[in-house]
């Protein structure tokens, strides 16, 4: 039987304190679970919800109620940050999430720097803050997670990614200046999320993977700027989840250097092994989203039980969910997680 409220359980888990069972969550942002089934059930739909704080908050609450995830996750995409810094966004459709239509600058050398509060003053960010405020007021026992696109992914959404990746090596000074600027924007963004009621911040940085960057660039950039962001959020008194995409072998040695309160990983990574290697790490994940979309109920049950048996600290999908994931499959996942 549950003793703790979902919020207490998640916050305690992130502190490494004892809980009666692992929470089961889905943080929003890159990893959001605004699936078509939920939108059709209640009529709060995307893409409208990306620009309307009421729809955004209502949809986040619908998702929480229908799926059984023990958090509210806001927003539902990874474009808020880049749009505020100048890139063009395609808002997608009900089924298809928004994306960067065009990065505004071809090179880090072309970046026109805005004031450090450009992101927090943007319309999109305002929508997110208001939605967080509404959702947090609605159910105080359910934690609201504010989701942020990480420094390198935001940077690679503002500068052409192919050039950006080369310039991390070729034009180091300007690349550092630019990523630092992006990080400062994100710190302000996180601060306003916290001020409006977010009790956890989750950072997903899919460009900052070992597979793309390799160990050297991951250490020189990803670790440095993700930690700068995490440290700043810690000063606000709020715990941070960091999600690392893809295979991790190339950068495993850096993972323990991240200051995050929990590390969330992709389905390809064995959390069990990661725990063995770094026993102090709070682990989160990593039910395959492929399984969630196409799997049979018994397989979803078994895989969830395996995560519980492996003592994964926080149960969550391994990555972004497909919008056509059947609601019933998610309910199977959260149901098994809660039945412990």
């Amino acid at each position: 039987m549950d003793v703790l409220s979902p919020k207490e359980r998640l916050l305690r888990s992130l502190k490494g304190e004892a809980v009666e069972r692992a929470p089961v969550i889905c943080p929003g942002g890159m990893m959001n679970s605004a699936i078509v089934d939920v939108m059709k059930n209640h009529g709060n739909v995307l893409p409208d919800g990306h620009r309307d704080s009421k729809i955004m908050a209502d949809l986040a609450l619908d998702v929480q109620a229908d799926t059984g995830f023990e958090n509210v996750g806001i927003p539902f995409c990874m474009t808020v940050e880049a749009e505020a810094l100048g890139s063009d966004i395609d808002f997608g459709t009900l089924k298809c999430e928004p994306k960067i239509a065009k990065e505004i600058f071809p090179s880090v050398k072309d970046v026109i720097y805005k004031e450090d509060d450009a992101l927090v003053k943007s319309d999109r960010a305002g929508t997110v803050f208001q939605a967080i405020y509404n959702a947090a007021g609605h159910s105080p026992d359910i934690p609201v997670i504010g989701s942020i696109t990480g420094p390198l992914s935001t940077a690679a959404s503002v500068v052409d990614p192919m050039n950006f990746l080369k310039e991390l090596r070729k034009v180091k000074d300007e690349s550092h200046r630019f990523v630092d600027y992006v990080t400062n924007q994100l710190i302000g963004y996180a601060q306003h999320m916290v001020d409006n009621g977010a009790s956890v911040i989750s950072i997903a940085d899919p460009t900052a993977t070992g597979e793309i960057l390799g160990p050297k660039m991951f250490g020189d950039y990803a670790v440095v700027y993700i930690n700068k962001l995490v440290d700043a959020i810690h000063e606000m008194g709020v715990p941070v989840i960091v999600h690392i995409c893809g295979r991790m072998q190339a950068v495993t040695q850096h993972i323990a250097n991240l200051h995050a309160d929990a590390i969330s990983v992709d389905a390809l990574v064995s959390l069990k092994k990661l725990k063995e290697e770094y026993p102090h790490l709070t682990t989160m994940g990593n039910l395959s989203t492929f399984l969630l979309e196409f799997g049979e109920t018994p397989n979803i049950q078994r895989s969830t039980e395996q995560l519980i048996q492996d003592e994964i600290n926080i149960l969550a999908p391994a990555c972004g969910l497909s919008t056509s994931t059947p609601l019933q499959n998610i309910q199977t996942f959260t149901g098994v997680a809660k039945a412990v």
Binding site: L165, K166, E211, I212, L213, G214, Q249, A250
Partner: peptide
């Protein structure tokens, strides 16, 4: 072989 990563491969291609 994971000696090179995307930035390196792109620079080789340049």
């Amino acid at each position: 072989e994971e000696e090179y990563f995307v930035p390196e491969l792109l620079m080789c291609s340049d």
